[in-house]
Design a protein around this nucleic acid. Structure first.
Lengths: 246, 246
DNA sequence: TGCGTGGTTTGATATATGTCAAAATAGGCT
DNA sequence: AGCCTATTTTGACATATATCAAACCACGCA
């Protein structure tokens, strides 16, 4: 973990070379067990760090595909657009997660990614990632797992959208955020939503009013406490139980 | 079915070796441009062909992950199950397509695959596929594209489930089948559904009655002709136009 | 500090889709 | 061929969620 290399010391528009071997996200982003020699090779990725302000695009649909991006800090939403302007938020991507996998199939991005707050990403040129993963089996395996995990995640959302009711969807959403919070060593009970009710609604296939009403209802039932975008989970087990029955 | 070789004459567990170089699906399943030498190596996959009768499981959720499967003939549905028994059909997989990608992430299958008719699959041991794709870059690239394509497909269904109305979903479904039919050199206007209204409903996040009503409505409007599971598309452009407005 | 604007909550009402039920149809098996 | 069962269609009605509208709130900016 890089001592002496603080984020603050880097100018906002700079593209800085960073070394995976020093990255404090290594476990999350590319948690492969590498020998020193392999780790040295991984540096050949010579990926760069970029910063984005809230509402900035990381990429737009149609952009040519060059790289995957590992999120070092902050968060993004991804969305796809329908011909008639309707949009569907397909994911909220957080620290330690990888974004851009959809673009591999057609060599251009099919969705767009927008920063939900000030964020930093690590650019991983995909061609080099492929070359390297031919040389380092554990890296190859990890890349495959990341892609497969995205498929599983998407299918989970299909289940949610296809067969859950509004309050179940919202409970699932909150529990998912809680779990991701916990996996980063943060409190599973204190959530700070980075997205609006409208965006949550789009993600969950609901209107923003329905999202708002469901949150209010949860609060009335003593499950959570809502203070605008800060949400405190008061009864995690009951929230869990809510999915499935009703 | 091969002449003189009925399903019954082949023990259920028989595994026949097949060669990719001879396979008439080569273009669809692994359409990589290989030299003779590489093609020779591909044979090392020494995949086997298996047969399944309708309603047979190809794999169940929880099964350990060993192989991907390329569908040589027939079709399968994939579904995930919720704790409380609810199920969501996540895909209808046809000839030339690959199934099982979800299992890579956790080394066990997260969904289950059930044959919708008599079918043949080609088993592709994943460990060998990984080894080979380290040696053959174009195979590696192709594997990545297949996984990415699955991600894009799933996100398309998220859009459908999250922001389209019942008849739009059904139109999208029929158009998708039509297109896949066409890509196999079959008529884009004559569809033979292998799945029930219940299964279509599960896939589209609708009840079977809604699916039936929408089909009847399309028929009344002269868009299609429904004869149980045989569907003739009479006005493809109008069906296309139906998605997006209304 | 106060204003303004986007975001959120809440209410009244509309509607698409679900639910329940019965009739019609199709396909498998003897 | 004809019965049996599962699937599909259709109808009447219920309801979850959407829609429209207004009030409320929070936060950034002057």
């Amino acid at each position: 973990m890089a001592l002496g290399v603080t984020r603050e010391s880097i100018p906002a528009d700079s593209r800085t070379r960073v070394a995976c071997s020093n990255c404090n996200l290594r476990e999350l982003c590319l948690p492969v067990d590498l020998t020193d020699a392999e780790m040295h090779r991984l540096e050949l990725l010579s990926h760069r760090k970029r910063r984005y302000a809230g509402a900035d695009y990381l990429f737009r649909s149609g952009d040519p595909f060059k790289s995957l991006y590992a999120i070092r800090s902050g968060s993004f939403k991804t969305r796809i657009l329908h011909d008639d302007g309707r949009e569907q938020v397909t994911g909220f991507v957080m620290r330690g997660e990888i974004i851009g996998l959809d673009a591999i199939s057609s060599d251009s991005h099919t969705c767009e990614a927008v920063a939900m707050e000030d964020s930093e990403v690590c650019e991983l040129p995909f061609a080099r990632l492929e070359t390297l993963s031919r040389e380092i089996p554990s890296l190859q395996r990890h890349l495959h797992k990341i892609m497969s995990r995205e498929i599983v995640r998407d299918q989970g959302i299909m289940l949610l959208l296809g067969s859950m009711r509004a309050e179940e969807r919202l409970a699932a959403f909150l529990l998912n955020l809680s779990q991701r919070n916990a996996s980063h060593g943060m409190s599973p009970n204190l959530l700070t939503l980075r997205m609006s009710r409208l965006e949550i609604g789009s993600y969950l296939g609901l209107k923003l009013e329905t999202v708002s009403r469901a949150l209010s209802h949860f609060q009335d039932d003593g499950l959570i406490r809502v203070k605008s975008r800060a949400i405190e989970i008061l009864a995690l087990p009951r929230l869990r139980a809510l999915m499935g029955k009703t």
